[in-house]
């Protein structure tokens, strides 16, 4: 004879309306999002194919064009930002898929803080992003890229902060367009490519027209790119600070927009 599974409701945490604390909510959401990534690390490596192609094909080109002024030391930090930009910009599609299937609705009916649902997801972005960045740096080492150790750690930190913010914006876009996949990808592409070109990530903007330089200066991504170049070379100067501030601003704005979108349903 089998006995019934004890499913009695856990004791309440006093007056708290939610069964878990805020950090536990964030952690549980983050962990749930991380599990498939950790179980299938190949997806992280696969995401590096495009950046590696850029490194392999662009560096010789730039080297020749610039007479050696633009080398791996200049290019790799920019590609790290490219990895962060593309991977986090696409992450909202995962939420969109769960909105399609109904899994997202289930989490909305669970007693989890709405803001934690998006913050937990956004924080998860730090892990694959950092792994990808480390792999890219490691692959670049034999070809002459020399990162400053402490600067590289700081650079990855800035990148992670930016990734959380941009990932959050991607989630906000998914929540805004709901089940319209085509609209998500159209907007995503329309935003990502101008941001990339106007950041000086692949080509310097110094020789560009004035309007392009002005747009580049207003682009927070430009500052993140400059910070990566400075930090990976061991230069802790104003560029590094501006990059950190720009990444932080993206994180604050991204999380605020995404939390608002999640609360609105």
């Amino acid at each position: 004879m089998t006995t019934a599974t004890d499913l009695s409701t856990p004791a309440s945490r006093g007056a708290d309306r939610y069964p878990n604390g805020p950090l536990a909510d964030v952690w549980l959401v983050c962990l749930r999002e991380l599990r498939p990534v950790l179980r299938d690390p190949a997806s992280i490596v696969f995401g590096l194919v495009q950046p590696l192609v850029f490194v392999a094909l662009f560096v010789p080109l730039l080297d020749g064009m610039s007479g050696g002024a633009l080398d791996l030391q200049w290019f790799v930090p920019g590609v790290l930002v490219m990895v962060a930009l593309f991977s986090t910009a696409a992450t909202g599609s995962n939420l969109q898929f769960e909105m399609h299937t109904g899994a997202h609705e289930r989490t909305l009916v669970a007693p989890v803080r709405r803001w934690a649902l998006v913050v937990g997801r956004a924080l998860k972005e730090m892990v694959p992003l950092t792994v990808q960045a480390c792999v890219l740096v490691a692959v670049s080492l034999p070809f002459g890229f020399v990162p400053h150790l402490l600067g590289a750690v700081a650079g990855l930190g800035v990148l992670a902060v930016f990734g959380v913010g941009f990932g959050a914006l991607s989630y906000a876009l998914a929540l805004a367009v709901r089940e319209q996949d085509w609209l998500f990808w159209t907007i995503q592409q329309a935003v990502v490519f101008p941001l990339m070109i106007l950041s000086g990530m692949l080509l310097p903007l110094d020789e560009g027209p004035g309007w392009m330089q002005a747009l580049g200066a207003a682009n927070p991504l430009s500052h993140v790119v400059d910070a990566q170049r400075a930090l990976f070379s061991g230069v802790f100067d104003g560029d590094a600070v501006r990059g950190l501030l720009a990444a932080s601003a993206v994180a604050v704005v991204g999380l605020a927009v995404a939390v608002r979108a999640m609360r609105r349903g």
Partner: peptide, 17 residues
């Protein structure tokens, strides 16, 4: 939400989980 269970028309579980 603490007091209820909900099984919607869609799948509750994440496909990749």
């Amino acid at each position: 939400r603490r007091s209820i269970g909900y099984v919607g028309q869609g799948a509750s579980a994440g496909h990749h989980q």
